[in-house]
């Protein structure tokens, strides 16, 4: 996320959520990035009334994330499979303004499109941190994997604003900055 803010050719603030917005973060881990997003949308004590649903599948990560949530009102932890619409939908009361997916699994672009089309509001910001090394080797080399992912995004209701290559800061990573139509 930080690398993409440094590398973007557009206004970096366009990629970040605004104060008081409703956000979804898949692959929250122990909440490092989530805490920075919390600074943007909630402020201390959540005086901006923002909300982040931070999802992770690992109980080990959730253990630390829960402690962060105790300290930072506005972040809500969810131990669930981020790829499952059924597991996520009871926890999303209205479509979100900002969505970031940071999962180390195969089919990241397909998951991103599936989740965005269900939970991201029209005009909402969708950021996909794509990890080439997590995609299937059978898809081809890293370049080919990125191309496949980009094609999946282009064929969806998402509009790609920028493809940010993070080489040098994060190897084999690309961030797609998208908007929902």
């Amino acid at each position: 996320m930080a690398a993409s803010l440094l590398r973007t050719k557009n206004d970096p603030s366009e990629m970040l959520p605004k104060t008081g917005e409703n956000c979804l973060y898949l692959g929250a881990s122990i909440g490092g990035t989530v805490s920075h997003i919390h600074d943007c949308i909630c402020g201390s004590g959540n005086h901006h009334k923002g909300h982040i649903l931070a999802v992770d599948i690992s109980p080990r990560m959730m253990r630390d994330l829960v402690q962060l949530c105790d300290k930072r009102p506005g972040i809500v932890p969810l131990l669930a499979d981020a790829r499952s619409i059924t597991e996520l939908s009871p926890f999303i009361n209205k479509k979100v303004d900002w969505f970031h997916q940071d999962l180390s699994v195969a089919d990241q672009a397909k998951t991103f499109v599936k989740i965005s089309e269900k939970f991201l509001k029209s005009g909402g910001v969708g950021l996909l941190s794509l990890k080439g090394a997590s995609e299937r080797v059978s898809e081809g080399d890293i370049k080919k994997r990125f191309e496949n992912a980009e094609k999946i995004l282009k064929d969806s209701r998402l509009r790609i604003i920028e493809r940010i290559d993070l080489r040098g800061l994060e190897e084999h990573h690309i961030l797609f900055n998208c908007r929902m139509e």
Binding site: P77, L78, L79, S89
Partner: peptide, 30 residues
Amino acid sequence: PQGHLDDPNWPEYSNEERELFEKALINMAK
């Protein structure tokens, strides 16, 4: 299939409901 997500008239959480929901999620995670 997603409960209510496309429903424009679905009631938003009240402050009490929001607080209860957030605390319940923290409990579920624990």
